[in-house]
Write a protein that binds this DNA or RNA. Structure first.
Length: 292
DNA sequence: CTAACTACCTGAACGC
DNA sequence: TGCGTTCAGGTAGTTA
């Protein structure tokens, strides 16, 4: 089902008369999953006839993709895994600002920020990335050793592999603060800065907490699942882009509880939300609901 | 193992 | 106007 919010946000953020593009920015698991769902029907069965990465983009060689046919389009955490012939895969990490766009779809035409292009037998797939944090790599199937974060990635949060007892045990063992622990991707895959803040607020856990017992671990486990599942339903839309352009909070106040809402009232207790730095990342939380 | 730090990138927002 | 600074944050690397 198409998200009204996502659609509106995309339309409103574009200048009048400009072509509509896919949602971009801050891709965490829900955003990457949305990309996967949009892309899969367009890519499966397509043959790669050429692949070029622009020289300033530091990516692995894409030549091994040429001549191969896309089998499945899968996802692990924030990584997109595009199967090629069953023998290779194109690993895509969108970084902060990366997006994949089909030439001509929604009026998309390449601009100065296109870092790589796959020519398919029926069109062009562009990798656009303003800040160049994104990476593409073609590896032999399942060989993720060259991508350390992917190789050590924790379980998928919405799968049965994400076990509450295992998660609680890891939390009990670590000496890290809980938020950096989540962002490290090893106990659970795909949680980035936005959804970490959202899940911690939902579970009423202070982002700096270092001792998270079994009960709170179970709450956090459930909150991660709930927050990510809802975000996927909304096509991964966040409200930040919308607010930046519009300058107004807009009528979509129910999506994000804390992210981007520093100084505003907590939805649970009405106390003002506070923004601090945890592990080098901007972190918004409720000092009243999320006590240490 | 962990923490702290740097680097990579660019554009938007902000301060004066 | 214009210029300088800060912020955004995912991943990788280094150092202590």
């Amino acid at each position: 089902m198409v998200s009204l919010i996502g659609t509106l946000a995309r339309v409103l953020k574009e200048p009048v008369g400009s072509p509509r593009h896919h949602a971009n920015g801050m891709p965490e698991l829900p955003e990457v999953e949305s990309v996967r769902r949009q892309l899969r029907p367009r890519l499966v069965g397509r043959r790669v006839v050429a692949a070029t990465a622009h020289p300033q983009a530091r990516m692995g060689p894409l030549e091994p993709a040429v001549g191969r046919v896309v089998g499945e389009v899968a996802r692990r955490g924030k990584y997109l895994l595009i199967d090629l012939d069953g023998t290779h895969e194109l690993v895509v990490n969108l970084g902060m600002t990366g997006s994949l766009r089909l030439r001509g779809q929604d009026g998309w035409q390449p601009d100065a920020y296109v870092r790589a292009t796959l020519t398919l037998d029926d069109g062009e797939l562009d990798f656009r990335d303003v800040r160049r944090f994104g990476r593409l790599a073609v590896v032999t199937a399942g060989d993720h050793a060259s991508i350390p974060m992917l190789a050590q990635l924790g379980p998928e949060p919405l799968s049965a592999e994400f076990d509450v007892a295992v998660f609680a045990a890891r939390l009990a063992r670590t000496r890290m603060a809980v938020k950096p622990f989540l962002l490290a991707q090893r106990a659970v895959a795909g949680v980035g800065n936005i959804y970490a803040d959202e899940a911690l607020w939902a579970a009423r856990i202070n982002p700096k907490a270092r001792r998270v017992g079994r009960e709170r671990a179970a709450r956090l486990h459930g909150a991660i699942r709930a927050v990510l599942a809802e975000a996927i339903e909304r096509e991964g839309t966040t409200f930040r882009d919308y607010q930046m352009v519009n300058g107004q909070p807009g009528g979509f106040g129910d999506a994000l509880a804390v992210y981007g809402r520093a100084g505003r009232a907590c939805r649970r207790c009405a106390q003002p939300l506070r923004k601090i730095e945890v592990g080098g990342r901007g972190t918004t939380y409720c000092p009243s609901c999320q006590r240490r």
